[in-house]
Design a protein around this nucleic acid. Structure first.
Lengths: 271, 271
DNA sequence: TGGCCACATGTGGTCGGACCATAGTAGGCA
DNA sequence: TGCCTACTATGGTCCGACCACATGTGGCCA
């Protein structure tokens, strides 16, 4: 009877008594009391155990970006659960942009801790846009709110030379007239992000980038069907230059106004 | 003995030719670029097929909130992949807040399409806060940006009576002096969200709620260690009333200023 | 000796089959 | 008629195996 509630692994969850397999028989007795889990929080959904453990490790600094997690087989044995459940937990972390998995061997392989909230949030937002739950118009409005805020703040502060140079380099790269539209929009997105990053708020930068990411498909599709892309690109270049100069001149009010007009104008073109 | 298909061998399963991985190196794309989902697209990861299919269904409106997905076994058969890979894809969607899975039978069971970006984004943000990648100070700043924007906009527009009544009801509920601090902060969060929702931007509302969600543990922990919680709660009640009245009086500027001071003041208390 | 190639190793990815817990539902029995 | 028990379909977990990939390592040959 593997369903015997060994180790007192009975827990009340959502009003229902959930009795779970108690790490069964495989010689896990050495780690039975484990770190802290005797009765308090055991009995969780198997993969939640791994999830909670990794979050704790992260919070207490024992795991940080660049570190490699033990292999899936090792984790499974460590927690007395199956590899499938470990994979479940790791998949969760991967979707959230906390880890990245790669096959093969060597230092670049395996599951390593990264910090890529942007693509994670962006992908999630994209799906919710797909399900008609988040209108594109609201995303555009949110972008305007964030970018005007960022640029106002950026203009009022001093920046690292490298940061402003990055934006300038992107500006120059976009001047190439032979650039495919898709490459242009990619640089465009990077430019907006680089400029907004001058405000020095990583959360806002992350969210802005995620919003942009979530609508990238929409933008590229719209651009591809535009007949007068060359003219529009020319306008965009001028607008970008004007915005950049306003920020560089520490004129926050003008920068905010210009970027607002810039985004609203471009969005109107794609309707 | 489970049929051990040799590398590159074609296995016939359920009437559909399934080419196992490893055939990518040889001829691949030349095989019927059919859009039919019965033909696996080699070179794509197994679970990505399901993911892409569901996103398409979502985008084209064939799937919407409340619909039930086919069972995991059915999907596995439909795509000619294993149930484990189907589960991988569904787990991804679940983490993103696109579906919700429940065991059992009946209409409420199985995998159902929902739209819960808030908890998904909130959980992801929380993990990145845990990994020291997103400072709490930046989150507070982002909240201030969003809430001041929301309240300015909310004050300048007309709202559904039900929406403003909800905020008022939360305000009244927080007046209960016997409320545990944790219950108070929960109502507090709901109040901020309800008020900000008056601005009518679902994306900003979602992000605001996610930010609050991601710092809930931090806030509750800080509140629990405060010695003078009763005094602070009294101050919070007054501030909430003032903010609410400013919005109700359509004084956007005052509402924005008050909510900024409110958040900054509370954050300062928890340091 | 030096460079190259084949194999050993360890990783995540996939597979298929099995069993369990859960929650509705249909059917049997009183 | 009403209650209770099987039945069924669902996701959750487990196991053991194999595959594709990337790297390291050793031996072989020039």
């Amino acid at each position: 009877m593997p369903s015997a509630p060994a180790a007192g692994a009975a827990v009340v969850r959502d009003g229902a008594a959930v009795v779970h397999r108690g790490a069964d028989a495989s010689g896990k007795m050495d780690t039975m009391p484990s770190t802290d889990s005797l009765v308090p929080r055991t009995g969780e959904r198997a993969h939640d155990v791994v999830l909670a453990h990794i979050e704790t490790e992260l919070r207490e600094g024992r795991l940080s970006v660049g570190d490699r997690l033990p292999g899936e087989r090792a984790l499974a044995e460590q927690f007395g659960i199956s590899r499938a459940s470990v994979r479940d937990a790791i998949r969760t972390l991967e979707v959230m942009g906390v880890v990245r998995s790669a096959t093969g061997s060597g230092p670049k392989s395996g599951t390593v801790v990264v910090s890529d909230p942007t693509s994670a949030l962006g992908q999630a937002l994209r799906l919710h846009v797909a399900s008609r739950h988040l209108p594109v118009a609201d995303i555009v409005q949110a972008r305007i709110m964030m970018e005007t805020w960022c640029l106002s703040r950026a203009a009022g502060s001093t920046w690292e030379p490298a940061a402003i140079d990055e934006a300038r380099a992107l500006l120059d790269a976009m001047d190439d007239p032979s650039l495919p539209s898709k490459a242009f929009t990619a640089l465009d997105a990077q430019f907006h992000v680089a400029l907004s990053a001058l405000a020095g708020n990583s959360v806002v930068s992350t969210m802005m980038e995620s919003l942009r990411e979530s609508t990238r498909g929409y933008v590229d599709e719209a651009v591809a069907t535009l007949g007068n892309w060359d003219e529009i690109a020319a306008d965009l270049r001028l607008q970008h230059r004007a915005i950049f100069e306003a920020v560089e001149a520490h004129d926050g009010e003008r920068a905010a106004r210009l970027v607002r007009e810039h985004i609203e104008w471009f969005y109107a073109q794609t309707l």
